[in-house]
Design a protein around this nucleic acid. Structure first.
Lengths: 411, 411
DNA sequence: ATTAATTTTCTCGACAGTCGAAAAAATGTT
DNA sequence: AACATTTTTTCGACTGTCGAGAAAATTAAT
């Protein structure tokens, strides 16, 4: 049902406008806010004083003295108004970061994961301890952490922070809310990592979204497994994203066994373990290895570049699965630029031809132009950054609803 | 960029709320409006009197005299406030309908298309004449038609009403705006027909959208060609839809030649002509026929039901292409119920097994439950209805912006 | 040092919109 | 004809935005 509009939501929306301007522009003066939001100076005044009273905004009186006239006072977020913990889980390590409400990184440490860690109990117990450590060594109260946002590979439930399927733990599920509720009252979020890589790339390269009419960009993450995120710029300028389990989209019903139990998933052919399987002519029905060192793929890539037919074929087959899969994606969601990230970008030269052929084999691509393909090597930072931005704008949305609420008082 | 909120948009939004309540509930009294929109009685009063003054609403003083107390007066749309022309193009005929602002069908006629009509000039010239006829025989001025909304199979440009590719005219494009602008000043819309079938089904069976968390439903249209529409219920309750060229999604790179020029599209295997080709073992590289009478498929369906292996195989192969294609769709967009329409529903028994197998072979479907599959035989009316509803709610949106505009005065 | 100029920010009254409550309207019942 | 009942309109209070002018804080000129 559509919502009725009241003067109350009116104010909420304009408060949100101010906060989002502050996010995008950093430290901003009264007049700049007024120009950017196209709100009148008077309205900006009432809203900023209100937010200041609530402890969300700070004003910097410091005058850089540029020209004459009354110097501008700049507003910025009150950094201590809220903190978020960002946890990035990869197959090699778990990274813990603490970020304040202004978006500055306050603390970070990483914990290596044991090579063959498959026991979810010890894993989750350690994660819990590490989060407590993050809070304690920064001398925070647990209540000051308003959000714990975790990224991982695998399939994530919608609605609650539960890991449904992951490459390492497979079908053993894990509810992070149940895990962390006892130690802190924060909101717990769990998201597929490639979704935030996509979000981050879309925000940084917003101009690329204009390449086609649908204002979308796809981000493909190539490594041991295959991830995909789609970011869309909506009519109001907000960028939203989602991450379908592209790696487990059926490529060939007669293909090899995938870690998910099905046959012929894209990942079973184009994931690192799939490429190795083809290269070494391992039987299609062998259950694939859980973890393969990057070194091994690098070795066979060298062989392929030196003209070894079988390994060349393995990469070509992987590229074909990826290319045709992307082609199917573009058929369903319309043509859009493609960003590629993950360790697999190192081997793109071996897959390029078959990937591009697959993309090309799409009705709208044949009619229009080839989508732009770009590369992004800093996958970890992209994921962290996307996650952080998403958390902060979530906090902003909560704040604008909590008008006159006493919840935001940690100065 | 996010928009600032002003008291003006506030009023607009509530005007829109009133109009949409009127659309959904039909003829409605003041108090019912107030309850449904949760606006105060006072606000409803000011908005309705405003809309009445603008000639958009009428009030029926007629009292059905139920119980005592002051009788309710009912509001309804002023039917003569606007008219829309709805054109539905199929391979056999073109259907013209005239609908007033209240949504009642005022006139309708159909024109059969010559069996092998491939000349786009004569086709479009006839269409132009037929629209003029629709206006004249209802004694309307061309300006009273505010929208001409056309549906067709094939690929439609986004942004302007141009047909890019169609089964009959293939790559010969046709810009309906250029065609119709000389004879009337209306807004011209062109949409893929299955998109509106999807929209219509989603609106009628809104409860089915709840089957999975993503509030989506897919509609598959089976006939000579293969169409697909996806309808999504957004957070505000509005249902939006789109229609990707699913029929031309790659199924098998080594498959038969499709009408679009590629090899192995779903349609080239599961469209009527694809099924016939497999059944009669026609060479994969033969350019397929443009049109096949329904009778021919019915004949081979009888053969298949009597146990003829080759024709059974043809339908099974078609089902496999559809099922795996749908499985890929569900992988990318999440699990959702599936509605099937078009003449091909008559042969669903011959494809059911392989279709369901394909859908089943999807990570999230295996983890959750099988999506519900439903059948809808009245495809033509679904398309018409979806188109009409979409036009009317578009008109409503225009009206709420044109506050105090003199544009809506045809009483 | 004082005054003028300039730029930014704040304040005040006007206007638009929604809401709750009370008044008015229209009918049925006694 | 007076009263009861239900619906609709009207009125005053409240919240929000806006434009214009006042106030503030600085530099430049006298």
């Amino acid at each position: 049902m559509l919502m009725k509009a009241s003067t109350e939501n009116l104010r909420k929306q304009n408060r949100g406008l101010i906060l989002s301007a502050l996010r995008r522009l950093g430290s901003v003066s009264h007049t700049e806010l007024s120009q950017w939001t196209s709100l009148s100076s008077a309205t900006v005044s009432t809203i900023t004083t209100e937010l200041e009273k609530e402890g969300i905004l700070l004003r910097d009186e410091q005058t850089p003295s540029s020209g004459r006239g009354r110097p501008r006072v700049k507003f910025r977020q009150n950094p201590n108004c809220a903190f978020i913990a960002i946890v990035r889980i990869t197959s090699e390590l778990v990274q813990y970061s603490l970020v304040d409400y202004a978006g500055t990184l306050k603390d970070r440490f990483e914990e290596k994961r044991p090579p063959a860690e498959t026991d979810i109990e010890t894993f989750s117990a350690r994660l819990k301890l590490d989060i407590e450590r993050l809070i304690q060594r920064n001398e925070l109260q647990p209540e000051q952490i308003l959000t714990v946002s975790i990224t991982t590979k695998g399939l994530v439930a919608s609605g609650k922070p539960e890991l449904l399927w992951s490459p390492v733990f497979e079908d053993t599920t894990l509810d992070f809310e149940d895990l962390l509720k006892p130690i802190l009252p924060a909101q717990i979020r769990l998201t597929n990592d490639t979704q935030f890589a996509a979000q981050s790339i879309a925000e940084k390269h917003a101009e690329k979204l204009g390449g086609f009419s649908n204002r979308k960009i796809a981000t493909l993450s190539l490594s041991h497994s295959i991830g995909l995120g789609i970011a869309t710029e909506e009519a109001n300028g907000k960028i939203t994203s989602f991450a379908p389990p592209f790696g487990h989209m059926m490529h060939d019903p007669n293909g090899p066994l995938c870690r998910c139990g099905a046959h012929g998933c894209i990942e079973s052919i184009a994931g690192f373990y799939g490429i190795l399987r083809t290269a070494f002519e391992v039987d299609d029905n062998v259950v694939p290895a859980k973890f393969i060192p990057l070194k091994e793929i690098e070795n066979i890539a060298v062989r392929a570049r030196n003209g070894d037919h079988r390994t060349e074929y393995a990469f070509r087959l992987a590229g074909e699965a990826l290319g045709i899969g992307l082609g199917r994606l573009l058929t369903l969601l319309g043509p859009m630029p493609i960003a590629i990230t993950g360790h697999g970008t190192l081997f793109y030269d071996l897959m390029q031809k078959s990937i591009l052929e697959g993309i090309q084999n799409t009705l709208q691509v044949r009619r229009n132009k080839m989508p732009e393909v770009s590369f992004h090597t800093d996958e970890g930072e992209l994921i962290f950054n996307g996650n952080m931005q998403s958390c902060l704008s979530d906090l902003d949305s909560n704040i604008i609803s909590e008008q006159n609420g006493t919840k935001w008082k940690f100065n």
